[in-house]
């Protein structure tokens, strides 16, 4: 019974969620650049993980570019591989 309740809540929450639009599609002037740590930091968690696009709302195409940029950024230490708190 309790499990059922959880399911119902989840469905309701899902229904309420608004579809976010991709920030890179919305503003085509933004360049996804591995050198731009400030921009990329918005798409990693505090721990340093890449934010999934179901959370950030980034479209598939831009998420691919973003993931590549973040990985390059990590390599040259603009971004952390993992952040310790």
């Amino acid at each position: 019974m309790s499990r059922n309740k959880v399911n119902v809540e989840r469905v309701m929450r899902a229904r309420r969620r608004r579809r976010k639009s991709c920030p890179f599609c919305a503003d085509k002037t933004i360049v996804i650049d591995y050198k731009d740590g400030k921009l990329l930091r918005r798409f990693i968690t505090e721990r340093g993980k890449i934010v999934p696009r179901r959370v950030s709302g980034v479209c598939a195409r831009h998420q691919r570019g973003l993931a590549l940029a973040i990985k390059r950024g990590r390599h040259i230490a603009f971004l952390p591989f993992l952040a310790t708190e």
Binding site: R74, I76, A77, F78, P80, F81
Partner: peptide, 14 residues
């Protein structure tokens, strides 16, 4: 500042 230490160094010259 490096995002993580590389060979004990916390800074790097780019």
């Amino acid at each position: 500042k490096l995002a993580y230490p590389i060979r004990r160094s916390l800074q790097g010259s780019y």
